[in-house]
Each structure stands twice: as C-alpha cells, then as structure tokens.
Amino acid sequence: MTKKLEHVQAWLQLTAIRGLGPARVRHLVQTFRSPHAVLTASVEDLITHGGLPAPLAHEVTVPLGSETMKRIDRDLQAVARGQYTILTLDDPSYPSRLKTIPDPPPILYMTGQLPDTDMTAIAIVGSRRATSTGRTFIRHLGGELAALGFTIVSGMARGIDAAAHDGALSASGRTIAVLGCGIDQTYPPEHRRLREAIERQGAVLSEFLSGTPPHGYHFPQRNRVISGLSLGVIVAEATIRSGSLITAHHACEQNREVFAVPGSPTHALSRGPHHLIKQGAKLVETVDDVLEEIFPHLPASMQERIATSRDPQQAALPVLEKEEAEVLERIPLEPVTLEAVLSQGSRPLAELMGILLSLEVKGLIAHVPGPRYYRTTLRHGLHTP
C-alpha cells in the first residue's frame, strides 16, 4: 500500500468511529497533527488534549470491527483501481471554500473532476415535485449562470435539482452533484444518465461510506455541503418545512448569499421562497438579480469577463421596439397558445403575428406546433424609447 493510501486509510478509520462527528474529527486532527496520531493516542491524551469524554476516548482506542475494516479495504481497492477518488480534509485538492464551514466532511468521495474554477459556484435547490414552469425557469437560469462561468451545485434529486444540472449541462458548463448516499449508489436510480453527464462535465461528491443507502436523515446532513461549496444558494419552489430551507439555513450560518425565486401566492411551493424573501433573501427573476449580489465576491478576471459579456454592446442584445417589448412580457418560458397571447392585448392578429415573427428572428422566442409560443431566454433585450 502506498503512503498516500495509508494516509487515506487512517482518515477512513477515524471517520468510521461512532460518536465522532465532522467537527470533532477536524478538531482532533488539528490537535494531534494527523489522523494516525489520533488513532494511536492514549485515552488520557484524548481526554486531556482532545477534549473527548472518557467513553468516546476509549472508543477511539478500540479496534474497528471486521466488517467495517472490510468496507474500508474495499474503498481503498476501488481508489487503487481508479473507480473513484477520496479527498481528505488535508488534501490540497479538497474544495477550499468547503473547508471554511464549521463542520466540513473529513472525507469526500468523488467521481469526475474538481478544478479550481469550481470555487465560483452557485447552488440551486428546490422541490422534488416541482411544477413544469419551475423546472423550465431553473433550467434557463442554471444555463445562463453556467454560461457565465459559474459551477452549478445541487443534489441530483428529481424536480428542481435535475433541472439545475440539466441547465448547466446544456450550456456546456460545469455542475456538481452532492449525494445523500454512498458514491457507489445512484439515487434516484433513473438519474443514471444524468449522473454520467455530470461526471463528464463536473463532479459527483459524497461524504458517506460506499454502500451507504439513501436514508432520509442523510439529506439534511448533505445539504450543508451543497451550501458550503457555493457562494450563494438559490431556492425555487419549496415548502416551509423542506430540505431546501434547511440548505438556506446552512447558507446563512456559513455566511453565504441566499436567493429565492417567487411564485404564485396561492401555491404551497411558493411558501418557502416567499418566507425566505420576507427574511431578507434576494428575490430572483433573472440572472442579473444573482449577479448584483455575487459580483463583488468574484475574482477580478471573472468580474471582467462577466462585465464584458453583460455589456449591451458586447453581448449584442437585440434592440426591441416598444410593441415588441410589450408582447415579449406576455410570453412565458412555457409554451402558450396564440389565442392566449392575443387575448392579453388589444392588437389585431395580423399585427401580433408580425411582432411574434420579429421576436423569433431576434432569438427571443420560438414556437411549437399549435402554434404555441415560448420565451427562449430570461433576457429581455433593449427597449427603444
């Protein structure tokens, strides 16, 4: 076994001890200088210098069970075969932003890659039972953020999470999925192809031992990692008692920005975001709302790139006549019928058809058979006075 794998083994053994949470493991390794030193310390030293209660100090000195050691051996063999990577808290490749939270995972299992550019990440979370409109909006928002160079972080769940990952992938951007199960598990199972795409354009992470099933209590614990990796968290379509609001709570504790996408005041999935907005979260209607808060926290090189891309002259935003802007405001991201667009205004059909054609030519809307029209971007273009 190589020295590096021996070091990883010590971390795995330490984190497998019951009663040692992430914060305690971090404290012990900082105190004793290495996980191996913790494992070989005396009960007296663990109590005196490590601050452990006597029963837990004794537990640290007791050899792990054979099944646990077999599991650790399987992990080390998988790493040696290149099936996945294990990042320890003292590994230079461990995400530096995640290290700043009070209780970072001592170990991270990973498939894919984590380059330094993933430091500029935005998390997007929301309901598994998201509406079609919510999924479409988040797919567009995630895509626009990814196109600007942000890495999109989410939990690979159904609904909003999947839409956020899809948006980033469709923009050829980077995205990270944080699992609530072992790295060798895919949950939900129907997201196997999504996971493979994420691994090609980002990374899949887990703090749980391989073979760990997706227990419900793992997901609130996982959520602190989603926020910890990110500059800010966007919440879309969530109930008051949802895991998404737990993620937002973690974000506040970690001094991250919190954003919320508003919705219908009568819909249950709007209550979570609306609650956050009342508490001071930034309301998000377009990507510009996110940039207003995040921009000062970005590296100078990224600020310059975004400023250039958002400059109207550089970004070549289409110029809209007043009537075009008015019609565009009535077209949502989800396809609507021609009759619905017509009923919202007073323009004759022939004039409306001309405006719709102009908006299509400018790349702001598209249509599907019906005909039904939908917006292709969250951007509005420039109005002429």
Rank of each mutant, 00 (worst) to 15 (best):
R24T: 14
S170A: 15
A177V: 10
L89Q: 00
H58V: 13
H140K: 15
Y187L: 09
A238R: 05
G21D: 00
L317E: 09
R81E: 08
G159A: 09
M119D: 01
L320D: 11
R379W: 06
L283F: 07
L52I: 08
E44A: 08
P220G: 14
G19N: 12
S127I: 00
S270R: 10
V361M: 02
R71Y: 04
G232T: 02
C181T: 04
I160A: 07
Y373P: 03
D166A: 15
G243F: 09
A37Y: 05
V287Q: 09
P369K: 06
G381W: 13
L209F: 02
K322M: 12
P214E: 01
H380L: 12
I152A: 05
R195L: 04
I183E: 15
H191I: 03
L378R: 06
L87P: 02
S206L: 05
A163R: 09
R81P: 01
F137M: 14
I122R: 07
V60I: 14
E329S: 09
E207Q: 03
P262G: 11
E292N: 07
A260P: 02
I355W: 11
L338P: 02
M69I: 00
G50Q: 03
G216N: 06
L194M: 08
F137C: 13
I183A: 05
Q30P: 01
A325I: 08
A248F: 10
V261F: 01
D118R: 11
V225T: 10
P35L: 08
K3L: 12
N223T: 05
I306F: 14
S93G: 03
Y187N: 14
R379Y: 07
P335H: 01
V178R: 03
Q221D: 15
G202S: 10
P262L: 12
I331W: 14
R310P: 11
S210W: 01
I176R: 10
N223W: 12
L338D: 04
L89V: 00
L39A: 01
P371N: 05
